[in-house]
């Protein structure tokens, strides 16, 4: 299971900051998160399964994309993009 870590407002939609989710790629993990917590559907992935432009996903601290592999116990952080100057 990947260890998915969220911040508000995503954590509020999922009922907590930490979630253990199965999946072999970032997209599979995020889709798994949507299945377990339907209110987050459409927030991180758009309807085409793409990570939204201003959301960053990190796997063990490295920036990841939809197809980035995820192994058991990997840490998947979902964060809003930095928007300052």
């Amino acid at each position: 299971m990947a260890q998915v870590m969220l911040r508000a407002p995503l954590s509020e939609l999922c009922g907590g900051r930490h979630h253990a989710i199965a999946g072999a790629t970032v997209r599979e993990v995020l889709r798994g998160l949507e299945r377990e917590h339907p209110p987050i559907a459409g927030w991180v992935l758009d309807e085409q399964g793409r990570i939204r432009e201003h959301v960053n996903v990190f796997v063990n601290g490295t920036h990841g994309e939809e197809g980035t592999p995820v192994a058991d116990a990997d840490r998947v952080h979902v964060l809003p993009a930095i928007t300052g100057g």
Binding site: G42, D46, E47, Q48, G49, R50
Partner: peptide, 11 residues
């Protein structure tokens, strides 16, 4: 209020 999966476009 979303577009069909597989359409390529998103709202």
């Amino acid at each position: 209020a979303t577009l069909p999966e597989g359409d390529e476009k998103s709202v």
